[in-house]
Design a protein around this nucleic acid. Structure first.
Length: 414
RNA sequence: GUGGCUGUAGCUCAGUUGGUUAGAGCGCCUGGUUGUGGUCCAGGAGGCCGGGGGUUCGAGACCCCUCAGCCACCCCA
């Protein structure tokens, strides 16, 4: 048994799990359509450089969480750890001549080599959207509004909070970063070990630290909001005003940051208390420098990604499959008749379960386990009358119905 | 990568300070009903106690290693 387990951090999606996943992705696809987004599928693996360039050489994802391997020609490939890089690459490869804006939706498995926790595994599923070619704050508003719409449609709106922040334009960001580093270097010894590392690699992320000592030091740190250029401030104000107008509630979180250089302006996250430490359910922001970093034409972008497994843990049980009608033949002659009857009913649109073997008792038992609404019993008596006994599986009530009138009678179970 | 907790039947779990042939409920199968499911009754199958090594007269219980799961950190969806 132990040697037949799936690899660490991977899971079989059994039919009832898959049902939840499908309910989520179908809901997303439907709502994305309302906003004019079309699905794009990119490969599950890419040249390792695709992720190196978009995620940064020093990011944790690249240095310790990527599944990297060589193919038979010695090319370095990586299983995708997230979706944006592949979409950006596809844009640069094929889509740069399309009229902008481009509204793309994607969905599928992602891979990260990590220790598991609730709502986190090594193969997991994300869906996300990218809006390319819109430098205006209205793009951010639409993207966030759509996310809120989706979460509402999934019935989790009351379990999540939207937090937003701004990183300012690239110049502000860079200038502020220098100011912050200068300040924190004066307090280096007081910082936690993790944050001392972050100071070199990714100083803005120190704001996320859960360490109490770090937060104490940060209280006196210079704030980004105090360093925004008027244009950046305007941008952020327009985003906030737009969300207000669209009826999307949010809270400001000045500690919400993104480390990579191409992120700018809006950063946001829908978080929940219901998933333990894995609070982020859907997160995104603006990445105006990304396409350029990939070697494409300078193209603004904004978007987000969400975790399907995390959402699956939050949503209510989706409706199960439609209840079938069970056709139950008794004897060989009836079985032959049943084969044609079954096809007739399926062509008419009824889900039909035809047991493979067994006497009446066994087949009714199977029909019950298949959650059948009704059983159409076909025995010698019925055959002679060109009729069937239809048993309501809920009440046990039985009625004899002419074969020619079956569809009409069964219509009540649709 | 770091730390803590946990692995007994398909599932949820019991199993006394180490002591004979390892248990329950649910589920599954068979029968009570040669043409009637769910309820009920009777019976049955199914475990190298995650794997390997060690201590012991004796290990499901104790020790070490390993694999897997859970929780937290890191990071992130």
């Amino acid at each position: 048994m132990s040697d037949l387990q799936p690899p660490r951090g991977t899971h079989d999606l059994l039919p009832e799990d898959q049902r939840r996943h499908r309910h989520i992705t179908e809901t997303v696809l439907r709502i994305a359509g309302l906003y004019g987004y079309e699905e794009i599928s990119t490969p599950i693996f890419e040249a390792t450089d695709v992720f190196r360039r978009t995620l940064g050489e020093t990011s944790d994802i690249v240095t310790k969480e990527m599944y990297v391997f060589e193919d038979k020609k010695g090319r370095s490939l990586a299983l995708r750890p997230e979706g944006t890089a592949g979409v950006a690459r596809a844009f640069v490869s094929h889509l740069r001549s399309k009229p902008l804006p481009l509204k793309l939706f994607y969905q599928g498995p992602m891979f990260r080599y990590e220790r598991m926790q609730k709502g986190r595994q090594r193969q997991f599923h994300q869906f996300g959207i990218e809006l390319l070619g819109v430098p205006e704050p209205l793009g951010d508003v639409e993207v966030i509004t759509m996310a809120a719409h989706i979460l509402e449609a999934l019935g989790v709106a009351d379990k999540v909070t939207l937090e937003i922040n701004t990183l300012g334009d690239p110049d502000t960001r860079q200038a502020y970063r220098d100011i912050l580093v200068a300040f924190l270097k004066g307090h280096r010894d007081g910082l936690s070990k993790d944050s001392q590392d972050r100071l070199d690699r990714n100083p803005l992320r120190i704001f996320d630290s859960k360490d109490a000592g770090d937060q104490e030091i940060l209280k006196d740190a210079p704030k980004l909001t105090g360093h925004l250029t008027p244009a950046s401030q305007d941008f952020f104000d327009t985003v906030k005003g737009g969300l207000l107008a669209a009826g999307v509630n949010y809270t400001l979180n000045p500690g919400l940051v993104r480390g990579l250089d191409y992120y700018c302006h809006t950063a946001f996250e829908f978080t929940t208390e219901t998933l333990g430490a894995q609070g982020a359910v859907l997160a995104g922001g603006r990445y105006d420098g990304l396409i350029e970093a990939m070697g494409g034409p300078s193209t603004p972008g904004t978007g987000w990604a969400a975790g399907v497994e995390r959402l699956a843990l939050m949503i209510a049980e989706p409706p199960g499959p439609a209840r079938p009608v069970a056709v139950v033949p008794i004897g060989e002659a009836a079985e032959a008749e049943a084969l044609s009857l079954v096809q007739r009913l399926r062509q008419a649109g009824f889900p039909v379960d035809l047991g493979f073997a067994g006497n009446l008792k066994k087949r009714l038992d199977k029909a019950n386990k298949a959650n059948a609404v009704a059983a159409v019993i076909l025995g010698q008596d019925e055959l002679e009358k060109q009729a069937a006994t239809v048993r309501d599986m809920e009440t046990g009530e039985q009625t004899e119905i002419k074969l020619s009138a079956l569809e009409d009678h069964l219509a009540r179970y649709r």
